[in-house]
Design a protein around this nucleic acid. Structure first.
Lengths: 109, 109
DNA sequence: ACCATAGTTCGATGACCGTCGTATAATAGG
DNA sequence: CCTATTATACGACGGTCATCGAACTATGGT
């Protein structure tokens, strides 16, 4: 078929390869948890720099890579910046209810 | 002659003090995940040694302590052994759906 | 009193993690 | 071309983690 949007240099696990310990570990860091929350809140691709974090650029890159390699987010290049999206469908399919539980956890009544 | 009313030496966080990152980190280790699963499956207190793990005793103690201090399990002494239970109610109250999602994750239909 | 059972405590060790600064791509626009 | 923006790669450093063995505590049974 036609598909010119190939970014093979970015490592993304397949939907079936997402491992629970890796996901939980990725989410166990407060900074990464915040990133995931913001991504979920915007429900639209965000650039790495679009998330407020008082950490250095290299650390931010590191966190995004951990999230991507764990299968939590998808990253795609768009011009000079890289857009990230939450892999909601893949995660819901593999671990039903997990993402909702994590996202809803920090938003008490 | 003596009364065994209290076990103050065991550190358990209050139900409201359970932190999400700590819980996720505790669950991100395969050994601890197995412990939690077994505890959930039995739905009745289990001794530390009652769970099959090919790790040394001291490592097992370590994992149980991580789980206890994260608020995932409750430990109580019973004679020569120490019984552990999943803190289902506290966890469900604080992070609704999280435990079910984690427990159901590795048990596909 | 003795001993067996069940866990803990104490270093120690090797691996991993979060963080940083600097240097290096990659791309858009003048 | 040059430059600014955006993000990655590469060490490096200190801290935490999972693991172990050996010594220790605590309890219960004989």
């Amino acid at each position: 078929m036609d598909q010119q949007l190939e970014q093979p240099e970015l490592v993304h696990p397949g939907a079936e390869e997402i491992e629970l310990p890796a996901v939980l570990h990725a989410l166990s860091d407060p900074q990464r948890l915040r990133i995931v929350r913001e991504l979920a809140a915007s429900e639209r691709p965000l650039p790495c720099g679009g998330i407020v974090l008082e950490i250095s650029k290299s650390t931010r890159t590191h966190h995004f890579r951990v999230l991507r390699e764990a299968g939590l987010i998808e990253q795609r290049r768009d011009g000079t910046c890289k857009l990230s999206t939450l892999r909601r469908e893949d995660l819901d399919a593999r671990f039903p209810g997990l993402l909702d539980a994590v996202l809803g956890a920090g938003v008490p009544a």
